[in-house]
Simulated scan of single mutants.
Amino acid sequence: MKKSTLINSELSYVVATLGHTDELTICDAGLPIPDHVKRIDLALTHGVPSFLETVRVILSESQIEGVIIANEFAEVNPAHYQALIKELEMEMEVTGKAITVTSITHEAFKARTHQSRAVVRTGECTPYANVIFQAGVVF
């Protein structure tokens, strides 16, 4: 049995196969997911798993160098936005590597998900709780 944090086999496989600059989207329960992009549906019920729980697990398992979020996230959902920024700051402190945060419109964000290797749907039911992680390298 796998010993590390991430035990979901589909998600573990995607994380293990990410190359430098590949993108992985973590989204709330309502974000539309493009048909051609791999869907990893973790949603069990409203709020389970949460956006932040899922973000923490992905950060514990992968090196991230960039983050893309919607402009609206900070305005409409400031609590989750601030919590995400705090998680990113803690990750930078642990790894000693910078993580660039880029904000785009929500419409542009939805279009950008078409480039993702996979979209991970959580049970989060708060608006704009979505992030695209860009894979970095550990060296």
Rank of each mutant, 00 (worst) to 15 (best):
A108L: 12
E93T: 14
V67I: 15
K86I: 04
T45L: 12
V138Y: 13
Y128F: 11
H80E: 14
I58K: 03
T113L: 04
V120W: 01
A118P: 00
A83T: 12
I58F: 01
F133R: 10
Q63R: 13
R112K: 15
L59R: 09
G96F: 02
F51L: 08
I132P: 00
K2G: 04
F133A: 05
R117Q: 09
H46A: 15
L31D: 03
V137D: 08
A79D: 12
V120T: 02
Y128W: 07
I7W: 10
E87N: 05
D41Q: 01
A79W: 03
I26E: 05
I99M: 13
M1A: 13
H114L: 08
T45R: 13
K110P: 00
Q134L: 08
R112H: 11
A16G: 07
T54Q: 01
I68N: 04
L6K: 02
V138Q: 14
E75L: 09
L42M: 03
H80F: 13
E87H: 05
E89H: 14
G96D: 04
H46Q: 14
I33P: 02
A135P: 01
E91G: 04
A70P: 00
L44P: 03
N71H: 14
A111R: 11
A135E: 03
V131R: 10
S60N: 12
G96N: 08
N77A: 04
L6Y: 07
I26L: 08
H80R: 15
S116P: 02
P127T: 11
A83D: 09
C27D: 11
V138C: 15
L11E: 11
D28Q: 10
T17V: 10
D41F: 01
